[in-house]
């Protein structure tokens, strides 16, 4: 059964101290994914409130070092969202993103992170619902994995 992702608000009020609130950082490209996230808002699609978005012009701007920095600062998950492969506002930027993220996944694994803590997703400006689904699913994935194994120091 493939259930449509639903977020109806966290049960039991606004979160007690005992349950884990993952820290998720989301990089969105300006033209597609950020617009898709806006559309999710316009459509009032509800999703968990644990992610914080950083807007960049193109997903290809997401430097591997940003991802490392995020994990170093205690992020439990990092999501990079860009235009669908053929839709890139900057022609082919997101093809590079795809390659970089594949490498990054290998890299973070070497550091002892579950590679699933980093996700790349294509979200177009018309896919508010896909943005919602991605956030819900990724939040669940990160919740299941628990807090980041990183404890500070290098």
């Amino acid at each position: 059964m493939n259930s449509e992702a639903v977020h109806a608000g966290s049960h039991g009020g606004d979160g007690g101290s005992e349950h884990f609130e993952p820290k998720i950082l989301v990089f969105c490209c300006n033209w597609c994914s950020y617009a898709g996230a806006d559309l999710a808002g316009v459509s009032r699609l509800q999703m968990p409130p644990y992610f914080r978005t950083i807007r960049v012009m193109c997903s290809a701007r997401v430097d591997p070092e940003f991802v490392i920095r995020a994990f170093e600062k205690g992020a439990d998950g990092v999501l990079v969202a860009g235009c669908h492969p053929a839709d890139c506002h900057y022609i082919g930027g997101n093809y590079r993103t795809r390659r970089r993220m594949a490498l990054m996944k290998m890299l973070i694994q070497q550091f002892g992170f579950d590679p699933d803590r980093l996700r790349l997703e294509w979200v177009s400006a018309g896919e508010g619902e896909k943005f919602q689904k991605t956030i819900i699913e990724f939040t669940n994935t990160v919740k299941e994995m628990g807090p980041t194994p990183y404890k500070g120091g290098v």
């Binding site: 999710a40 808002g41 009032r44 509800q46 409130p49 978005t53």
Partner: peptide, 14 residues
């Protein structure tokens, strides 16, 4: 708004 109040309507504190 678009990426906060509208998508977390039932969790005012969060």
């Amino acid at each position: 708004r678009d990426q906060c109040s509208w998508i977390h309507m039932h969790e005012p504190k969060a």
